[in-house]
Design a protein around this nucleic acid. Sequence first.
DNA 1: TACACTTGACTGAACGTTCAGTCAGGTGTG
DNA 2: CACACCTGACTGAACGTTCAGTCAAGTGTA
Lengths: 195, 195
Amino acid sequence: MQDNAGQQTRERILACAEDLFGRKGYDAVSVADIAHACDVSTALIYYHFTDKESVLKALIDHASEVFDVHVREAVEGTGSARERLERFIVGWLESAESHVSLLRILVRPLTDPEGPLAVELLARIGRTIAALASVIAEGVESGEFAPMEPSRAAEGLLGLVNTRAAADVLNVPANADHHASAELVTRLFFSGITR
Amino acid sequence: MQDNAGQQTRERILACAEDLFGRKGYDAVSVADIAHACDVSTALIYYHFTDKESVLKALIDHASEVFDVHVREAVEGTGSARERLERFIVGWLESAESHVSLLRILVRPLTDPEGPLAVELLARIGRTIAALASVIAEGVESGEFAPMEPSRAAEGLLGLVNTRAAADVLNVPANADHHASAELVTRLFFSGITR
DNA sequence: TACACTTGACTGAACGTTCAGTCAGGTGTG
DNA sequence: CACACCTGACTGAACGTTCAGTCAAGTGTA
């Protein structure tokens, strides 16, 4: 009972931190804010983590597990390049919907390039783009896609999918209709807007 | 000479703040940082601005002038919907290249929805999307574009163009080749990746 | 069973530092 | 003088972090 009480608390702290960091941003959230949100003392957070940044680090590690799955599936999966990319789009948007805060933490360095752990996060994004680019490159080589620079296209795809995911910030109601989102992204990315 | 020394100083403060806010983010930059960057006292900043947030506000007003031009041109300009959107893409990417910090300030609330002036900035983004959507809607009505929800497409376009603009954060060298960027975005948005 | 000892989980209070913002006053020009 | 411009010295509050110590729940021993 008490053996895993510590683990439970650690998870509770992480859950609160995920929500707060995702909503307000790392800098704007104090350790006291996190502590208050999960009803513990600030000192307890330093019992479970070495410092504030390591809380963020733990969240990022968790986030990678959630989102990287879809990238790996696209790279290692079966089917045509387009099929695998379509599955990536759907999967990524699903994860984005259920882990908005986590996604915001991951993409923040794109608008905050000197923020906390920016170097690590940007490297991660770079790896994601490279992975998607490899799938696109396959499609280009096989003639499935038109000739183009794969890394650029991959960048655009990630931009599209993340914009769509961040859309609930805007007035646009993105809730519950991520199927429509996936369709839009798929269509925009593969066929464009032109009739 | 000294009459407009104040104006000059105000502009210098704004220039430093633009750079610092754009690189490190509003929260991570102290008033003392800004003061030190343009070699004045912190007190002087409070002589020219009522508080820290109003410095950001002044920057945003300036940013709007820089970026809104391209949106207005797309809405009020002549030519087909596609031509006007293409001009918007080129213009926006040009401004983005020469005002990276400013753009980062404008889009930050997308990943920091409770940050400083987020409400105002999000409203601004909403207006931009609505404006682009109206152009896309024209294209849809005239049969130039395939039937689709204009606001979603507009959202995607803005996402594409801003992702491309933020790309210099990544390892991808986006400098000096915003023509290639514009081509990519144009192609991705209008024709998609498919052969 | 009883009692001394250890441990993991947790806290209140305080640390030094940094922050946004203030203020009384100085300097040069019309 | 009067006014625009500017500064050094300062303040209260908030910050991340530390620390001495509490407490309930084992554990080993007799």
